[in-house]
Amino acid sequence: MSKSPADNVISLYREHAAAFEKNRNHEFIERTWLNRFLELLPGSRSDVLDIGCGNGAPMARYLIQNGCRVTGVDTSLPLLARARASLPQQRWIAADMRQMPVTGPFHGLLAWHSFFHLSPEDQRPMFATFRRLAAQGAVLMFTSGTRLGEAIGQFEGKPLYHGSLDTREYQELLSASGFTVVRHVDNDATCGGATVWLAKWDGGGRFGARSDT
């Protein structure tokens, strides 16, 4: 039986690490969202888990420049090797986010353009993982789609899988895990059309979302 596109995401990023680095948007359009993330962290020496960290640029590097201690998790060994070479003082771990080997707790959890490569079925249990890894008051930021379903893009001429839940289910899963949504924007035109969730763990499980959809 042939693999589905969802099963091929890991091998794509392993085989085409150089192409990923070359094609990565170098304008750093994510800076505004990272600044919002940083503003919610409890202090200047916060521990942040970068889930799907790639080569550490530009996201992890910016967090480090702003005083964070970063633990990066990714399945692409070539990209992790680049992260270790350029940012050797941080922790870089080869692992699948669905079997997270770290224990935390972390003050910040970041899954930027990585979480949405999981199928809807694999995304749902990740919220329990976010909760397990979160310190009191932890900040969570991730990107997603806007509707339940799957979409197939292209990377180096091969299908690249994306999955999504719908907005209501993301809200419900965040709330059930004790995260309050601080900001949510669908298809942010200032950030390459990304749909972004920024939430803070308070243990209460209540809604408090500001949604700019």
Rank of each mutant, 00 (worst) to 15 (best):
M1C: 07
S2T: 13
K3F: 10
S11M: 03
H16D: 05
H16G: 03
A18C: 03
E21M: 12
N25I: 06
N25Q: 07
F28Q: 10
T32M: 05
W33H: 13
N35H: 08
R36P: 01
E39R: 11
G43K: 09
S46P: 03
S46K: 07
D47L: 13
V48G: 02
D50H: 04
G54N: 05
G54Q: 05
G56T: 10
P58S: 05
P58H: 08
P58A: 08
M59H: 14
A60T: 14
Y62W: 14
I64A: 10
G67E: 13
C68Q: 10
R69F: 11
G72A: 08
L77P: 02
P78E: 02
P78M: 03
R82G: 04
A85C: 08
Q89I: 00
D96I: 07
D96C: 09
R98A: 12
G108L: 06
L110Q: 03
H117P: 02
L118C: 09
E121A: 15
Q123V: 02
R124Q: 06
P125A: 05
Q136I: 08
Q136A: 15
A138S: 14
L140E: 07
T146I: 14
G149I: 09
I152H: 08
Q154E: 15
F155N: 05
E156F: 01
E156P: 02
H162I: 01
G163H: 03
T167M: 11
E169W: 04
E169D: 09
L173D: 02
L173G: 02
L174M: 10
S175D: 01
S177Y: 00
V181Y: 01
N187S: 11
T195Q: 06
A199K: 03
A199R: 03
G205T: 06
G208E: 14
R210F: 08
